[in-house]
Design a binder for these strands. Sequence first.
DNA 1: TTCTTACATTGTAATTGTTATAATTAATTT
DNA 2: AAATTAATTATAACAATTACAATGTAAGAA
Lengths: 143, 143
Amino acid sequence: MNPLKEALDTLKDTGVRITPQRHAILEYLINSMSHPTADDIYKALEGKFPNMSVATVYNNLRVFREVGLVKELTFGDASSRFDFVTSHHYHVICEKCGKIVDFLYPGLDEVEHLASHVTGFKVENHRMEIYGSCPECASKEVH
Amino acid sequence: MNPLKEALDTLKDTGVRITPQRHAILEYLINSMSHPTADDIYKALEGKFPNMSVATVYNNLRVFREVGLVKELTFGDASSRFDFVTSHHYHVICEKCGKIVDFLYPGLDEVEHLASHVTGFKVENHRMEIYGSCPECASKEVH
DNA sequence: TTCTTACATTGTAATTGTTATAATTAATTT
DNA sequence: AAATTAATTATAACAATTACAATGTAAGAA
Ligand SMILES: [Mn+2]
Ligand SMILES: [Mn+2]
Ligand SMILES: [Zn+2]
Ligand SMILES: [Zn+2]
C-alpha cells in the first residue's frame, strides 16, 4: 500500500479529520523526499492554498507528530525540520550547506543499556546525528 | 592546574581580554557543575554585576565557544545550554523534569566510519543524547 | 603622562520561529 | 436542517537571540 493512503488511514483510525490542507501537507512531506521546515511547506503549498495560514501548517505538523506520522528534527540553530516517518534511521548533516542525508544503522541498544545502568534512568530512546562535509562541499574545500 | 586558571590562560593565548564579566561567567560555568542557559548565568550573576547586559552573556558565551572553552547544547524546544568543556561525554536527559546527566562512552568511531563510507561525507563529529526518565521521575510514574 | 586605537559592555530595538487567541468556516452528528 | 464539534484563518503575543549605536575601558604609541 502506498504511504499516503496508509497515513490517511492512520488519521481516520485516530479520529483526525482529513482536510484538503492536511492531505496536501502529507502529500508534500512524502513526495518531497526531504526534510522541509514548516515554512518550506507553507511556501510550497501557497500556490494551491493561497489562503492557508502558517499556523495551520504548524498545527497540523503537531497533529501528525502526535499520531506518529512525522518526526520533528531540531538542529539547534535554525527552525525545526520534519521527516515523514518510515523506518528508523539517523541523519548525516553537511555543516557547510546544510544537506541532510538519511543513514541506516542498527540500533545502538548497547549504549542505551549502559546509560541506563550507569545513571539509573529508565531509558526510552536516543538521538544521534553525524556532522561533516558532503562530497560537493568537501571537494570545494581543497580547491 | 585548576580549570579556571587553565581557561584564563587559553583566553590570554588567543588574545581575548579577561574582563571581570568574563571571569565571572567562566567561574560560574565551572563551579555550577551543571548545564546552565544564558539566562541562568545572567540571573546568577546579577547580584555581583547589577548592570551586566544579557547581551554580554551571549557575546561572551559565543567567544568561549569559538576558542573551544564551552560547548553549546541545543535540545530543540527550549533555549541553549552551555557546558564547560572538559573531556568528551554524552548526555542522558530526563523527558519529565529536564535533568541532564553526563555520560561517558567510548567514541562511536565505527558509526562515523560507516556513515562516511555510505554517504561519501567527510565526517567530522557526531552528537548523541539518550532520553528517558530519571530515577526520581520514574518512581513517581508508577504510583 | 596623554593621545590614539581597538576591544568590550550596555541598553535597546529588531528579528525569527513558534504559539495563543478569537472569529469564521467547514464537517459531522442529531 | 439544526446543533455540535473540529479546523482554519488572521493576527497578536511570546521568547530566545542578535544587531546596533553609544559609552566605557584598557593596551600601545608618542
Ligand atoms: Mn530522514
Ligand atoms: Mn555535560
Ligand atoms: Zn554540503
Ligand atoms: Zn526527572
